[in-house]
Every structure is written in structure tokens, then in C-alpha cells.
Design a protein around this nucleic acid. Structure first.
Lengths: 134, 134, 134, 134
DNA sequence: GTGGTCTAGACCACG
DNA sequence: GTGGTCTAGACCACA
């Protein structure tokens, strides 16, 4: 499959935010490896059927955040994440726990909005219907 | 605690979408019981420090989705979820299953991006850190 | 059947306007005859499950318009419509035609909103599914 | 003629409801063809002398009802009505039939109240004074 | 006091 | 320039 990111024009979240998140997660989960080349702005714009400016905006933002690197005339590539010191890492743990909780709540809220019960969702996850290799 | 919903003005997701999701989640997890009255539009607006129109927009949306019922001049109340016929339910199941899978994948990807393993996430969910066992 | 007027709390049209229209049409079509007594304010409020103030407001408005008459301590009764001079009557004809057209458009719009085609609606009407005696 | 929709500020029915119905009617009768672009929010607001937010509210509502499609940054367009499965269609038929009957009765009652006979009304409808034979 | 409608006007996302 | 979000604040319908 092509490196298609899920973008939904009906989602109230802005396209640029959806795309940025999708790319960050593709990187975090290894679907986009360190050093891998991202699609060109135009390719991705065509593929996702959105405006090239929107894609460019996302790439610029990711570059500013040192998540990707643009080599002029070559392309855009995934950067190696910066090393974190042990103290900074520890300091972030609590924050990450909180984020996980929020994430889980949001996920459950969306699932129940689709008509699934809490139990069904857990069953779905534990039954291994979704890839464990991520 | 007051029935405060988490709203983050910096999140690119629109305030009204955040609030709608939070309310749906509160209902799904039983934090807001069937028949319970939601905070009044003005109360909630003050509490969340957002405009009353934004809250009203969410209530209107939930009303149309038959999630809540608004009694004119009285207030807004959690509605009992409608019974679904077996046929209609079956017809929609396939589509909903697919949506659940996408949702679960996205959720797991985000959690992994935060540095959690698949196992940790499942433990978090099954340990009841989220919701009330509904 | 009781003299139940169709009132729909979900209709965007205000309850008082719905009720006033319903009563006027009940009179115009003879379902409420000249001189007939209307239900008491409280009776009607209970029957329609709306506030008595709303019913009272409608009765007051209808009395002001000389459509009904309230006899203190007795009840509210349908008045005889005032005679119209021939000239006034003629003058109103054009206006009525226009009103009929608007009415028909609104009716058709609502029917198609329910998923019926123009042809289906006409078939429904000409087949006599609705009372011709009104 | 401009694509003007009839809006009456004195009608107790809310402006947004009047406009939504007018647009649905224009689509149903082919005055607005499938794929046609609706007036822009601001254009229509100026034309109808109402606030742009009110128009936007209607467009949003029609978008969610899958009557129109809004392409971000481009405009709003009439959507092709979705195909309905035979089963779902059959399931809804009974309820819709009942609604049509109520609608037809109300319409005839109103027309009679204006002084027209049942026959005149039918003649008016079948003669094609309304709609475009859709 | 409750939610609903409407306005005026700012700012944002997208093309 | 297109629609979308949000605010501030007036006024209405209803209980």
C-alpha cells in the first residue's frame, strides 16, 4: 500500500492537524522509518485530494519541530528523534500517563458514539484484531 | 467534583467538538445517568469559560442525535438510547466494525507514540482507569 | 376522538403558533363548528402536555382576532366569521391564490423531504387517501 | 431571476427553518440541479437581508443531512441523493406513509381554510403550477 | 430561569 | 474568496 494517511474531510479537526498527527504517528510507530523519504508535497496533495498548500504547511511545521528535514531539491526525510536526558525523561512520565488517560477516554468516547459498549471495545482489542506489531 | 468536562482551547479540535465528545463520553460511562439533567447552557459556559452559544450549539447537536432531550423552558436531559431493530442493527454492523478497527488502530498508534506498549495500554483499559465499567 | 390538535415539540415552529394555526384550521374546516365550545385552557394544556400559559396566550390572541369569544365563567366559543363585502372579497382573491401557491410549495417541500416524489404525492392525493369532506 | 428563496421575517417559523425548507424544495423540484453550486453564504445573506451566520447554519444543517456537500474553501454544492437499500427503505416506508398522510391532511385543511375546494387544490397541483414536474 | 434565534463582527482553515 | 468557529449581547418562547 502507498503511505496513505487517513484524512477525513468531514472530521471537525482541521485537515492540517489531522495530517500532522498522522505523519507523526506513522513515524512513531515505525511505519515511516528514520531516514525514510516522505511523499512530495504534490504527490501527497493529489493522493489525499487536498490542497498542496495544506500539505506544505504541515511539512513546514514538522520541519520546524525537527521531526523531518527537507533537503532542497531532494525531498523530505524523517529525522532521528533527539536524545532525551534521563531527568527530562522522568519528568515527562507523569505527563505521558495523563495523556494516555485522555487518549483512552477519547478513544472510548468515539467507540461508544459508534454504538459499541465498553466491554465490546475491550474484547475487540484483547482479541488481537488490531496489529500488535505497532 | 463539579460535572466539568475537559476542554482545551489550544487543541486544534473545535471547542464544540471537544465538548460534544466529552458529554457523549460522560453519558456512555454513566457519569451522566439516563434522565439526568445536564448543566444549563449558561452554567456550563461560565464553568468552561466559553461562550454560551458554543454550549448551545452542542446541546442542539446532541438533541438532534437523540442523545439528549431538551424540554423547552426546563432544561436538557439525558435520553435513553433508542432500541435498534435487529435488521437495521445487522445492516449497520459491518460498517461500524470497520470504523471501530480504524479507531482502535489509531488509538494504539497514538499510545505507542507516547512510549507505551500494547500490553501497557490494555492493562490500563482493563484495570478500569477509564470509565466506570459501563 | 377528543379535539386534539397536532402539536409537535420538535417542530421549529413555536408551540403557540402551531396551536393557533391548528385551532384556526379546525374552525375553518368545520371540525369546530360556529358556537362550539373550545376545551378549557387547563384541559388543553394537559392534553397537549404544554404549559397553560401557552394555551392562554393563544386563546387571548384568537379572541383579539375575533375568532373566538370568551364568556367569563362559562368558556371559550367559536365566533361566526364576519361578513365580507363583495369588493373586499374580490380584492382578497389574488392574495389567496398566492397563499395557495406558497402553501402548495411548502407542502410539496415537506413531502419530498420525507423522500416522496412529486408524482407519489399527487397520486396519494388523487387516490382519495385523505378526506374529501373537509 | 436570481436564485432567491422566499423568506418572511414576520412568519413565526424561524428564518433558518424557512430557508432550509426553501432550499430543499428548490433541489427537489430541480430548480437547483444535482451538482449545482448554492449561492455563497455571504451572497445569500445579503440577498435575503439576513445574517451570514443564519445562512451558514442552514448550510451546515443541510450538509449533515447529506443534502449538500461543502468543499472547504470552494463552496457548497447539491449532492446526489443517496441510494437506499431495499430493506431499510421498506422499514421506513410505513412511518413515512403516515407522515405523508398527516402532511396532506394539514395541507388540504389549510387550503380549504383559504376558501378553496379539494378539487381546486388538486387541479392547482396537477396543472403544474408548483414545481417543475419532478 | 431555561433553551432558541438572530445579529455583528473577529479570526481561522482551505484553495 | 469560500465556509467554519467563536464571541458578545439582544430578544423570544416556554415553564
Amino acid at each position: 500500500m502507498a503511505a496513505t494517511f487517513n484524512i477525513n474531510a468531514r472530521d471537525p479537526m482541521p485537515l492540517y492537524a489531522q495530517l500532522e498527527r498522522a505523519i507523526r504517528f506513522a513515524i512513531a510507530t515505525g511505519k515511516l522509518a528514520i531516514g525514510a523519504q516522505l511523499p512530495t508535497v504534490r504527490q501527497l496533495a493529489v493522493e489525499l485530494r487536498i490542497n498542496a498548500n495544506t500539505v506544505a504547511k504541515v511539512y513546514t511545521e514538522l520541519e520546524r519541530a525537527r521531526v523531518v528535514e527537507t533537503r532542497r531539491g531532494v525531498g523530505t526525510f524523517v529525522l532521528e528523534p533527539p536524545l532525551r536526558t534521563a531527568t527530562a525523561s522522568a519528568a515527562r512520565r507523569a505527563g505521558r500517563e495523563r495523556e494516555l488517560r485522555l487518549l483512552a477516554e477519547r478513544f472510548l468516547a468515539e467507540a461508544v458514539a459508534l454504538g459499541f459498549s465498553h466491554a465490546e471495545v475491550l474484547e475487540h482489542l484483547t482479541a488481537g484484531h488490531v496489529g500488535k506489531g505497532v
